[in-house]
Write a protein that binds this DNA or RNA. Structure first.
Length: 311
RNA sequence: CGCGGGGUAGAGCAGCUUGGUAGCUCGUCGGGCUCAUAACCCGGAGGUCAUGAGGUUCAAAUCCCAUCCCCGCAA
C-alpha cells in the first residue's frame, strides 16, 4: 500500500515504525515544522522527522495544508491512503478526499468518548479503569469520523500519563497496521459514532494542574498521575515556592482529619497531606528551581515540616 | 543571544549579603540502651567547597573574571 504518513510527536513513532516493518511503501512523511524548544530555544526537529530521515523517507513540513503547494505535493506522492497520528493540524477537505482508501486516524480513546486533544490524560484524571485506541476514517469534524477498529487497554490504579501514553502508542501501532490490512481487503464495515454518547477531552490548561486539597484523596491522586510526568500538577509550600508532584499514593481514601485541607500531617519517607476526604501520600516531587527528587530527600533538605500548609 | 535556579561528605541542603577553625537532616561504620526495632543515646570515618598553579586580599566556599556541567520555567 502506498501510504502518506502524517504525525509529529513520540506518540506517532511506533505507528510509523510498524507500518515500515509491515512492508508498506511510505511515500512520504508530513510533520510539523521544526520549532524552538528547550533551554536556549534551539530549533528542534519533531521525533517523526528524525526517524524518517534515518529511514530515508522524504519529509514535508508545510506551514499549511491548504492551497496549491500542498495539493501539488499530494499529487506527486499519490498515496492510496493517508495515516494520521497526532499530527497537530486540521486536514482540509481536499486532502481528506484525495486517497482511494481515505484518511485513517489513530485516536487514544474508545470513541465516541474523549474526542479531542487530551484523551489519555482526561481518562486517567476521571479515574477510568479502561481506555483504548480507536482507528477511524477521518471526517470534517473533530474525531467524529466513522470507527474502524478498537482495542482496550486497562488503566492500573497507579498508572500515570506516561505509562498509558506508551502502552497506547504501541497498541495504536498494532491496531493501525491491522486496520490497514483489513481495509485493503474490504473486511471492515465503518461504524458511525453515537454522537449522543460523545464526550470531549479538552486540552490540559495550567489551571487544570493546581492541586485543590479540599477535594478527596482519590480525585487528587488521579489528577496527579494523569498529569505526570508532563506537565505535572503543582501546589505551593508555605514560603510561596512552587512544588510539583510527580508521584503519589492514596494513603487512606476515607479517613477525615480535623485539619485544614493541605496540611502536612507527617514527613519522613513520604509527605502525608490532609485532603477534603482521605489522606494523600506524596512520593516524588519537583521543587522550584530543582530537579525531581523523592519526598524523603525533599524532607531531609528541611524544605518542609509537619504542620505546613500546601495551597 | 527567551527567563530563572544550582554545582559544598554517599543523598538532600545551610553557610556566601557583613571574607577569618567546614555545618545540618539522613545514610554509613563502631559502641551503648532495649524483650525488640526503621526508635533512642554516645562516638568515628568520609569534603580538591564544579574547573582555572586566574584576579583582589595578610586571609576566599564567601568578593571579581573566565570556562564546563546540571536543573526548573516558558515554548
Amino acid at each position: 500500500m502506498k501510504i502518506l504518513f502524517m504525525g509529529t510527536p513520540d506518540f506517532a513513532l511506533p505507528t510509523l515504525r510498524e507500518l515500515c516493518l509491515a512492508g508498506h511503501e511510505i511515500v512520504g512523511v508530513v510533520t510539523q515544522p521544526d520549532k524552538p524548544k528547550g533551554r536556549g530555544h534551539h530549533l528542534t526537529p519533531p521525533p517523526i522527522k528524525v526517524f524518517a530521515i534515518e529511514k530515508s523517507i522524504p519529509v514535508y513540513q508545510p506551514l499549511t495544508l491548504r492551497g496549491e503547494e500542498f495539493e501539488q505535493t499530494l499529487k506527486s506522492l499519490d498515496p492510496e491512503m493517508i495515516v494520521v497520528v497526532a499530527y497537530g493540524k486540521i486536514l482540509p477537505q481536499n486532502v481528506l478526499d484525495y486517497p482511494k482508501y481515505g484518511c485513517v486516524n489513530v485516536h487514544g480513546s474508545l470513541l465516541p468518548e474523549y474526542r479531542g486533544a487530551a484523551p489519555m490524560q482526561r481518562a486517567i484524571i476521571d479515574g477510568k479503569t479502561v481506555t483504548g485506541i480507536t482507528t477511524m476514517l477521518m471526517a470534517a469534524g473533530l474525531d467524529t469520523g466513522d470507527m474502524l477498529l478498537k482495542c482496550e487497554v486497562e488503566i492500573g490504579e497507579n498508572d500515570n500519563f506516561e505509562d498509558i501514553h506508551d502502552r497506547l502508542s504501541e497498541a495504536g501501532a498494532k491496531l493501525l497496521v491491522k486496520t490497514v490490512e483489513k481495509l485493503e481487503k474490504g473486511e471492515i464495515t465503518p461504524e458511525k459514532q453515537d454522537d449522543s454518547k460523545a464526550t470531549y477531552a479538552a486540552k490540559i490548561e495550567k489551571s487544570d494542574c493546581l492541586l485543590d486539597f479540599s477535594l478527596d484523596a482519590k480525585t487528587l491522586h488521579d489528577l496527579i498521575r494523569g498529569l505526570s510526568p508532563i506537565p505535572l500538577s503543582f501546589t505551593h509550600t508555605p514560603d510561596g515556592k512552587l512544588l510539583k508532584v510527580v508521584e503519589s499514593r492514596i494513603f487512606d481514601a476515607e479517613k477525615t482529619v480535623k485539619a485544614l485541607p493541605g496540611t502536612v500531617l507527617s514527613v519522613g519517607e513520604d509527605i502525608k497531606v490532609v485532603c477534603g476526604k482521605g489522606i494523600l501520600s506524596l512520593l516524588t516531587v519537583v521543587p522550584e528551581g530543582k530537579g525531581r527528587m523523592s519526598a524523603a530527600d525533599f524532607v531531609r533538605g528541611r524544605k518542609i515540616a509537619e504542620g505546613a500548609l500546601l495551597r
